[in-house]
Nucleic acid binder design. Structure first.
Lengths: 69, 69
DNA sequence: TAACTTTGTCAAGTATATTTTACAAATTTT
DNA sequence: AAAATTTGTAAAATATACTTGACAAAGTTA
């Protein structure tokens, strides 16, 4: 899977560490790292928590308009 | 968890059965049923597949603007 | 440069998403 | 009303999301 650079940069824009984001979303730092690096396929609830913690929506961080497959 | 009525109605609007949607998204009919009934927490990849099969986006089907928690 | 923080990664364990098989209730079609 | 399709649900099995603990590499700050 591809890296999630939108997530990575949204977090960077808030100067927030993976650790902080992890705490806010109630998961482990390793999980945040894995999501950012595309190492797996998070649940929608986690995605929503991440979005809320970063002030973004699902479409902002997890939707790719282009890739039509 | 709450039922996903947006999903249920988007599917109904296309006159598509759970079985058809399941086939298009590569999961089981029971999985679609469980997602619609809020019985669990699907992965983002499944959510994206469902959206594409129904011509909707993540925000359309899986994002609730209101509930601020 | 040395201390400190952040990040990537790995292995083993636990929790839960998803499958398979199956049956009954409900809805739609004939 | 009967036949056919659609949907809800359940139990057992499998796949995988997520945790815990730990270590090294890279980046940042003193």
């Amino acid at each position: 899977m591809a890296k999630n650079l939108k997530l990575k940069s949204a977090r960077a824009a808030l100067d927030m560490s993976q650790e902080e984001l992890a705490k806010k979303t109630g998961v482990t730092r390793q999980t945040i790292s894995a999501v950012e690096n595309g190492d797996y396929n998070p649940t929608i609830n986690l995605c929503v928590s991440i979005c809320r913690a970063l002030g973004k929506t699902l479409n902002d961080l997890f939707w790719n308009e282009e890739e039509l497959k």
